[in-house]
Design a protein around this nucleic acid. Structure first.
Ligand SMILES: [Zn+2]
Ligand SMILES: [Zn+2]
Ligand SMILES: [Zn+2]
Ligand SMILES: [Zn+2]
Lengths: 136, 136
DNA sequence: ATGCACCCTGTAGCAACTACAGGGTCAAGA
DNA sequence: TCTTGACCCTGTAGTTGCTACAGGGTGCAT
């Protein structure tokens, strides 16, 4: 399989595939006589794993650890669990933080009654955190 | 006021202040004979506006527009409202997306029963989106 | 005079890509 | 046979919003 096919098969940008190879996340594939990259099913599976993990918000370094783990089938899987749990906690933190932000923004947006910038409550609120109802 | 004082007064890293000046978000301040930056209250207010807007998640370009608006007090403020509303909508989208992610991660993390990597349900789930209950 | 805190410029690094520029390869159609 | 177009290659630079130096200068106290 050439890089364009792998790209279509996994929904990954070609440049991204080459990027993953450069940073050592994907192994270097064989080359054809024309120096084209040539991939097999294990490459496809690995890239699918990477893309899916990225879609779930894992960082490249986390994915690197997860791949190391899955390359070593006899190892204890508790590290995978730890990485995923920590990531879940981060997502929960982020949701909490964005929820505060949303509430504050809702309040700010709701204050504008139209008119000129000098009297705009949105601009006023942005200039002074003391108008805010919570930390953020 | 020297840059260190402005930094403490606004809770902004010194390097960040110089960065904002470089990209034209803050005006160039006067310099002392020793070539030190010298700030006044309007600078402090502007930087406070910038930091608070950043804390609320606005991008630098959005802040640039908001500052342009507040520099021109007679202008109609509807653009400020539009920028803030659009940002609010983006935050809401992000929350929705992260909530889906959280649910999926919760499901994935809950599947691990310990054991070796070869049989780990977490690693299995990361490798195949078909194990997922929703899009993400 | 010497130490220390502070300031200066300019450049490079971070994450995770994305977008070229400038070239090579290959199969199909006129 | 020639050419067109789709594909591939490498290498580098851009994106966002900072942050971290390196290598120097300034100002005040001891
Ligand atoms: Zn308004
Ligand atoms: Zn606030
Ligand atoms: Zn497991
Ligand atoms: Zn999935």
């Amino acid at each position: 399989m050439k890089i364009g096919e792998l790209s279509r098969a996994t929904g990954t940008n070609i440049e991204t595939i080459r990027y993953y190879e450069r940073i050592g996340l994907l192994p270097k594939p064989h080359r054809t006589v024309a120096n084209y990259r040539s991939y097999g099913d294990p490459h496809r599976a690995r890239l699918t794993f990477v893309r899916h993990s990225r879609d779930l918000g894992f960082t490249i370094e986390e994915i690197r650890s997860l791949l190391d783990l899955s390359d070593d089938p006899g190892r204890d899987c508790s590290e995978a669990d730890r990485i995923a749990s920590r990531h879940l906690a981060q997502v929960e933190d982020k949701i909490a933080q964005l929820t505060l932000l949303r509430d504050e923004l809702t309040r700010i947006v709701g204050r504008c009654r139209g008119g000129v910038a000098a009297e705009c409550r949105v601009i006023e609120a942005l200039g002074d955190h003391r108008h805010c109802a919570s930390a953020h």
